[in-house]
Nucleic acid binder design. Structure first.
Length: 103
DNA sequence: AAACTGACTAATA
DNA sequence: CTATTAGCCAGTT
């Protein structure tokens, strides 16, 4: 069954990210058939309700880092969730996309 | 309706 | 490595 709204497509892709892996915004956008709309992916994440089943924490930016948010603190939550899944961060706070990148 | 904002990326200097 | 520019577009003011 095909998703109709862009948001639904984005969420569908994010849900497919395996445990212990991460994907970039641009990658999610592409997989959701919305090339060049990486920003919209970020916006869609921001619009997610609390307690969602969408593993939004597995979406990071192209540099393999957790994106900065308007409200500090949420970044730490995301890092903690990823660490719990086995994703390791480098000393500079970067994730090795070669190792943990999805596909 | 127009301007502003933002969980982005890629290219260029 | 950092800084700047341009492209992208939904939601908010």
């Amino acid at each position: 069954m095909a998703e109709s709204s862009p948001y639904q497509r984005i969420y569908a892709v994010v849900r497919r990210i395996p445990h212990g892996k991460v994907a970039t915004y641009g990658q999610v956008a592409r997989l959701a058939r919305l090339p060049g709309r990486a920003r919209q992916v970020g916006y869609a994440m921001h619009a997610l309700p609390a307690g969602t089943r969408v593993p939004w924490q597995r979406v990071v930016n192209a540099q393999g880092k957790v994106s900065r948010r308007r409200v500090p603190g949420a970044e730490l939550t995301q890092r903690m969730l990823l660490l719990r899944e086995g994703v390791r961060f480098g000393g500079n706070g970067r994730i090795s996309l070669a190792r943990f990148g999805w596909k």
